[in-house]
Design a protein around this nucleic acid. Structure first.
Length: 828
DNA sequence: ACTACTGTTAAAT
DNA sequence: TAACAGTAGT
C-alpha cells in the first residue's frame, strides 16, 4: 500500500522520463507489479485451472523492452506471500471463492466475458507462478533474486550496494526505504516512467500547505511516512501525511510529535505507539535481505551496537541461496514446485534491426526523443517459444555432467539447467567451506565470506565447471560474451546491435552494467544533511539533525560474528534435500544433484531454526531493536534543542526484556537461542499481524473483522487460494497437472501441511484484547505434522525444542501480549 | 483544511 | 489493486 498520499505530495518532483534515458543503467524491478498485472491477461485460464504462461509473457515483454533500451533489468521477487498485505485471509478467500463461483456460473451460461470479470477478482500471484517467470528469466539470462522477505527491502538493498541504479516499482515505500531513484508508472506503450529522485526532495514545492522536506534527513522523512501510516503501522487516528509533516517540522522528532499529540489529548494515541513506531522504523532500516554478493542474508542496513546476531543464521546460507534463486518456495521452504513443467522458456531471438540507441544524453534537450522503434515490434513476440539458435547459448549444451534427469526438458532448457548446476556447485563449495569444521556456523561467521572476492570465486567455479556464467547474482559476470556490448553501453557510445545471428548478441543483452560493480561509497542514499545539506529555507530553526544515524549511507560492512556455538539440528535442510519420487523435472535435478555432490556425509548442511515460523522479517530481537532505536532517537533528539525527556522512555518497557536479556547472558545457549527465537517470533508475529491488516481497518471505528490472520499465501498451483479448504470444491491440482497427482503422498502431504504453516497471530479475545494464541499454534496439527515431516530422524530433538519453546512462551506470556498486541484493535 | 470513507474505473488484450 | 472523485466528519 505504501504511504498513502506520498506520491501526490511529491508531484512537483516527479519527472516523466523516457526509458532511453536510462540506457546503460541497471534497474531493479519489483516483479510483483508485473506479475499481478500480467495475471489479468489470463485470469480465466488461471481461475479455471488451465496451464498458462501469459503472465510470464507479459512480464518478459517488459523485460525485453527494458533491454531494448539498453537497460539491464534485475528482477526482484517477493519472498513472502506475495499479495497479502491487505485484508485477511478469510475475507480474501471468501471473496475469491465467491468470485470464482460467480465466474463459473456465468461461464456455464456462456457469458464468458462477464465471467472473466469475476475471474479477475479471484486470481492471485503465487510463488509458483513467480517461478514460471523465473524460468523465463533464466532462459534469457536476466538477473533476478527472490527476496527472503519483502521485495521492497531487497530492492532498496540492491540499489544501496550499487548493484542497480534505480528501482522500478509502484510502491512509494521504496522512497522510505531510502532509495535514490525510484521509477513509477511504467508505461509500456510510451516507454516512459515517472521518476522520483531523492535528491530532489529538497525542492518539493508544496504551495503553502503541502509538505516540505527541506532540510530533512532520512530519519525525518521516514518518521513522517510512518507517522502518516504505513504498512507496518497504522497512523494515529486523524494523522495523515500533512499532519505528520507539519508536526515533525515543528517538533523535529517522532518522539516529540507523539508526545505532543498525546498531551494535546485530542487524538487517542494507542498505547505503546512509540515502541511500535520504533519497530516500524526498524523494519524500514534493518529488514533482512539477501546479498547476492555475500550470498547470504544480511540486514538492509547494517546493525551494530548490541544487535544480537544469534539469529543471523536462521536461514542457513545454502537455503538462503536456494531461496534467492527461486528453487525453494519462500513460504513453505520446501522445494519449489513447477506448476507448469511444460512451459520451457528459451532464449529469444534478438531484434533483427540494428539501430543506434541514444543513451542518456547530458544535453537533456531531447529526453523524449525515442530511439528507432522498428526493432521493437520484432522484438516482443508473444511467446518466448522461438527455438534457440544453434549454439546460441554458449556452452550450455556442452556441460558434461548435466544430470540427465531433467527429462524431456533436457537439451532445451539449457540456461536453466546451467543455473541449477551452478547453484549446486556453489552449494557444494559453500558446504565445504562452511562445514568442514565441527562448528559450521561459527566458521561461517568468522569467515569473511567470499563476498569480497567474487572473482576468485568465479575462478574456482570455472574450474569446476566450464559452463558457468549463469551466475545471476554476481555483478561481475565477466565471462559473458557481452562484455563488449557492455563496454559500449557504459562508455556512453552508440550501440549497434548488428548481427542478430551471432550468439554474442544475445549475450550482449545480459551484460550487467559496470555500475553494477558498485562503488560502495556513495551509493547510499541521498541527501544526507551534512553532505548535501538541503538549503535551509523557511525553517531556519531546523537544525540539522544528526545524520550520523542515517543508515542509508552506511555500506554494509562485515559484522563481527559472534560464534555462538549453537549446534542446531540439521533436519530441516536435510528434508529439503530429500529426493522426491516424482520430481518435477528440473528442480529435482537440482536437488538430487545436490545430494551426491555434497559427498560429505559428515558435513551436514547447516540447520535452521526449526520453529514454526521461519519467515521473520528481520532477525533482531526486540530488545536490541529498541535499544538501537532509542539510540537513534536519542541522537536525533540530542541534536534537537527542544529536546525534552521523552514522555515514555521506551526503555525495557516490556517484561520480556528483562527476561530475555537475562537469557542472553546466562548461557544455556540452547535456551538462550530459544529465547531469542521466541522473542523474534513475537516481534515478527506482531509485524506480520499488522501487515496482514488493512491499513485502515485497524482503526477503531471499523471493527476488526478477523483477528486471526495467517499471513501466508494460499498457494495453489493454479494460483487460487485454497488453504483453508484444501479439499474444497476446487481441485488444487487441475487436470493439467498430472504430475501433481502422481506426487508421492508424503510429498503432497508435506506440501499441504507446509502451506498451513501459521504465523503467530493475535486473537482478539472477548475483552477486546488481542493476545497471542500461541498454544493454539503450537498444538496445531499442521505444525506438528510439519515438524514431523521435516525432522525425520530428529523428531525427538525438535520435540524437545518445541517443548522448550512452549515454556518460553509461557514464561513470557506477557511479552507476547505487549509486543504482539495491536493496541489499535483494543477498542472493540 | 485535513482525514477518511465510499464508489467507480482502469489495468490486460 | 490503485488511483481518483466525491463527500462527510473533525
Amino acid at each position: 500500500m505504501g504511504i498513502s498520499g506520498l506520491l501526490p505530495a511529491l508531484k512537483s518532483i516527479q519527472v516523466t522520463k523516457h526509458l532511453s534515458e536510462f540506457a546503460g543503467q541497471t534497474l531493479a524491478v519489483d516483479a510483483y507489479v508485473w506479475l499481478h498485472k500480467g495475471v489479468l491477461t489470463c485470469a480465466t485460464e488461471l481461475a479455471t485451472g488451465k496451464d498458462t504462461h501469459k503472465y510470464v509473457d507479459y512480464a518478459m515483454r517488459r523485460v525485453r523492452l527494458l533491454r531494448h533500451h539498453h537497460i539491464e533489468p534485475y528482477i526482484v521477487f517477493d519472498g513472502g506471500p506475495l499479495p497479502a498485505k491487505k485484508g485477511t485471509e478469510d475475507d480474501r478467500k471468501q471473496r475469491r471463492d465467491k468470485s470464482l463461483a460467480k465466474g463459473n456460473a456465468l461461464a456455464a451460461q456462456g457469458k464468458h466475458k462477464e465471467a472473466r470479470d469475476h475471474y479477475v477478482k479471484c486470481v492471485d500471484v503465487t510463488p509458483q507462478m513467480a517461478f514460471q517467470l523465473i524460468k523465463a528469466l533464466r532462459a534469457e539470462n536476466v538477473r533476478y533474486v527472490v527476496a527472503p522477505y519483502e521485495a521492497d527491502a531487497q530492492l532498496a538493498y540492491l540499489e544501496r550496494i550499487g548493484l542497480v541504479d534505480g528501482i522500478l516499482t509502484e510502491d512509494s515505500d521504496l522512497l522510505v526505504f531510502g532509495c535514490r531513484q525510484v521509477l513509477f508508472k511504467f508505461d509500456f506503450v510510451a516507454s516512459t516512467v515517472v521518476s522520483i529522485t531523492r535528491k530532489d526532495f529538497a525542492s518539493v514545492s508544496g504551495s503553502g500547505s503541502d509538505i516540505c522536506l527541506v532540510g530533512w534527513s532520512d530519519v525525518q522523512f521516514r518518521a513522517m511516512a510512518i507517522l502518516s501510516g504505513c504498512d507496518y503501522l497504522p497512523s494515529i487516528q486523524g494523522v495523515g501525511l500533512k499532519t505528520a509533516c507539519s508536526l515533525l517540522r515543528k517538533w523535529k522528532t517522532a518522539e516529540q510529535v507523539v508526545r505532543v499529540i498525546t498531551l494535546e489529548g485530542k487524538k487517542s494515541v494507542p498505547r505503546n505507539y512509540l515502541d511500535q513506531f520504533k519497530l516500524a522504523d526498524k523494519c524500514f532500516q534493518h529488514q533482512r535481505v539477501y546479498c547476492p554478493r555475500k550470498e547470504r542474508l544480511v540486514y538492509l542496513t547494517e546493525v551494530d551496537l548490541d544487535w544480537n546476531d544469534e539469529l543471523e543464521a536462521d536461514l542457513d546460507p545454502s537455503l538462503a541461496k536456494k531461496l534467492a534463486a527461486g528453487d525453494v518456495d519462500p513460504v513453505s521452504l520446501s522445494t519449489m514446485e513447477d506448476i507448469n513443467p511444460r512451459f520451457l522458456p528459451r532464449a529469444r531471438a534478438l531484434p533483427l534491426v540494428s539501430h543506434p540507441v541514444n543513451r542518456r544524453d547530458k544535453g537533456k534537450g531531447k529526453a523524449m526523443d525515442t530511439p528507432v522503434k522498428e526493432g521493437i515490434l520484432s522484438f516482443f513476440g508473444p511467446n518466448p517459444t522461438i527455438p534457440p539458435r544453434q549454439g546460441a547459448r554458449l556452452s550450455i549444451s556442452i556441460s558434461p555432467n548435466r544430470k540427465g534427469s531433467v527429462g524431456k526438458a533436457s537439451g532445451k532448457r539449457t540456461l536453466a539447467e546451467i543455473m541449477d548446476h551452478d547453484i549446486a556447485v556453489k552449494k557444494q563449495k559453500q558446504r565445504s567451506r562452511f562445514f568442514d569444521t565441527p562448528e559450521p556456523k561459527a566458521l561461517a561467521r568468522a569467515t569473511t565470506t567470499p563476498i569480497a572476492n567474487p572473482s576468485r570465486e568465479r575462478e574456482n567455479k570455472e574450474n569446476v565447471y566450464i559452463v558457468v556464467e549463469m551466475d545471476d547474482e554476481e555483478p561481475d559476470i565477466d565471462s559473458n560474451v557481452s562484455m563488449e556490448a557492455q563496454g559500449e553501453v557504459d562508455s556512453d557510445m552508440e550501440i549497434t546491435i548488428n548481427d542478430p545471428e551471432e550468439v554474442e548478441q544475445e549475450d550482449g543483452y545480459i551484460s550487467p552494467t559496470p555500475s553494477c560493480s558498485g562503488d560502495m561509497q556513495d551509493l547510499s542514499s541521498p541527501v544526507r544533511g551534512t553532505q548535501t545539506p538541503m538549503r535551509k529555507r523557511g525553517t531556519g530553526t531546523d537544525r540539522e539533525i544528526d545524520f550520523g544515524v542515517d543508515p542509508i549511507s552506511s555500506p554494509p560492512s562485515q559484522r563481527k560474528w559472534r560464534p555462538k556455538s549453537v549446534t542446531r539440528s540439521v533436519t530441516r535442510t536435510r528434508s529439503l534435500d530429500l529426493p522426491q519420487p516424482h520430481p518435477p523435472a528440473r528442480l529435482d535435478s537440482t536437488c538430487s544433484s545436490l545430494i551426491p555432490t555434497s559427498g560429505q556425509p559428515d558435513a551436514p548442511p547447516p540447520a535452521l531454526f526449526p520453529g514454526p515460523d521461519l519467515r521473520h522479517a528481520f532477525a533482531d530481537d526486540l530488545s536490541s531493536d529498541i535499544d538501537c532505536s532509542e539510540d537513534e532517537e536519542r541522537q536525533v533528539s540530542g541534536s534537537n534543542s527542544s529536546a525534552t525527556p521523552t514522555p515514555s522512555p521506551p526503555t525495557p518497557a516490556t517484561p520480556d526484556e528483562a527476561v530475555f536479556d537475562d537469557d542472553d547472558f546466562c548461557d544455556p545457549e540452547e535456551l538462550a537461542s530459544k529465547a531469542n527465537v521466541m522473542r523474534k517470533q513475537a516481534v515478527i508475529a506482531g509485524w506480520r499481524e499488522r501487515w496482514a491488516l488493512n491499513g485502515g481497518s485497524a482503526k477503531s471505528h471499523k471493527p476488526i473483522q478477523s483477528k486471526l490472520s495467517r499471513r501466508e499465501t494460499n498457494v495453489t498451483p493454479v494460483g487460487r487460494h485454497t488453504i483453508s479448504h484444501p479439499d474444497s470444491q476446487f481441485r488444487p491440482y487441475p487436470r493439467s497437472a498430472p504430475h501433481s497427482a502422481s506426487r508421492t503422498t508424503s510429498n503432497s502431504r508435506r506440501a499441504q501441511t507446509r502451506k498451513s504453516l501459521p504465523f503467530f497471530t493475535p486473537v482478539r479475545k472477548a475483552g477486546g484484547h488481542s493476545t497471542l494464541d500461541l498454544s493454539g499454534v503450537l498444538d496445531s496439527p499442521t505444525l506438528c505434522a510439519d515438524l514431523e515431516v521435516e525432522v525425520e530422524g530428529s523428531v525427538v530433538l525438535s520435540s524437545a525444542r518445541l517443548e522448550r519453546f512452549r515454556s518460553v512462551v509461557a514464561f513470557s506470556g506477557e511479552l507476547d501480549e505487549e509486543i504482539i498486541q495491536n493496541p489499535y484493535r483494543c477498542p472493540r
